[in-house]
């Protein structure tokens, strides 16, 4: 695989995103509203308690506020674009390039994630830290957090991509997409920290890839005093999901792209 070809795809996707800059401000404002709501909501949940399920209010708020900015960062609509391009036939313009379709999409997603990071996540992060006066641990955890985020992005992409492949077989994946969004948001711990889940649900989540997208990186960054072993375990778990999902999505990719339907012309 020739990386230069794919890096330019990431760059073009980044530039395309930035060219549509007006959308950022709205996503950013939406984020602020969401963060304000969870701030007061969880203040009410913590009423009189300094600690719930092993988390302080500051920790839980940091976890959820960061979750919302990660969510917008990972929101690159891979599956929606795949479906739209299958329906209108534009998919062919990807297939006539000397590129692997899946890696093409991966690097497009990568470029979009970086643009989201710079234009939405960073401002949101500043607000979380300075306006809501949230303490975030500064130390080794940040280095592990960055590695963890990278793997979270890959896992999120592979899931989106596999959903997107469904559109090669069925005309409408609207229902599948929204169901996926809800499942991922909930079972990943992006809406409620997983440590607040009932025991059996925590067990189920532990065996699913979704928690590797939000819960693992967020736990790494918000939990003070984790040992090196804890970090290694968390990252190994993510690494395992990256490998499994890479292999599975690659297999589905091979089957789905063997014959594609191109509408129009």
């Amino acid at each position: 695989m020739n990386m230069g070809r794919y890096l330019v795809i990431a760059k073009s996707s980044f530039m395309t995103r930035v060219a549509r800059r007006s959308t950022f401000i709205f996503t950013f404002l939406g984020n602020l509203a969401y963060i304000t709501v969870i701030y007061y909501l969880w203040m009410a949940v913590y009423e009189g308690n300094s600690m719930l399920n092993g988390m302080t209010f500051n920790q839980a708020f940091a976890y959820l506020a960061l979750a919302s900015s990660l969510f917008t960062m990972f929101q690159v609509y891979t599956e929606w674009f795949m479906s739209a391009h299958i329906l209108n036939g534009d998919i062919i313009t990807s297939f006539i390039k000397p590129l692997d379709y899946q890696f093409n999409k991966l690097f497009e997603a990568f470029g979009a994630v970086i643009s989201n990071f710079i234009t939405i996540s960073i401002p949101t992060l500043l607000v979380i830290i300075f306006v809501f006066d949230t303490k975030i641990e500064v130390g080794l955890n940040l280095a592990f957090f960055v590695i963890s985020l990278l793997m979270a992005m890959l896992i999120s992409f592979f899931i989106d991509y596999m959903i997107g492949l469904c559109s090669f077989y069925t005309e409408s994946i609207w229902g599948i997409c929204t169901t996926k969004d809800v499942i991922v948001l909930f079972l990943s711990g992006a809406m409620v920290p997983i440590s607040f889940f009932p025991e059996y649900l925590q067990t189920i989540c532990a065996y699913l890839p979704f928690q590797a997208i939000y819960n693992i990186p967020l736990t790494i960054v918000t939990t003070p005093g984790l040992s090196l072993m804890d970090y290694a375990n968390a990252l190994a778990m993510q690494g395992m999901w990256v490998v499994i999902l890479l292999l599975v999505s690659r297999l589905l990719h091979a089957v789905a792209t063997r014959t594609i339907t191109v509408n129009g012309g």
Partner: peptide, 22 residues
């Protein structure tokens, strides 16, 4: 259809294609 990048300046499409096709 177009194979150019809809939102980007024309010259960028040529530069991107240059790199995709080496």
């Amino acid at each position: 259809r177009t194979q150019l990048w809809w939102d980007l300046p024309v010259i960028e499409s040529f530069k991107i294609l240059r790199q995709i096709y080496r």
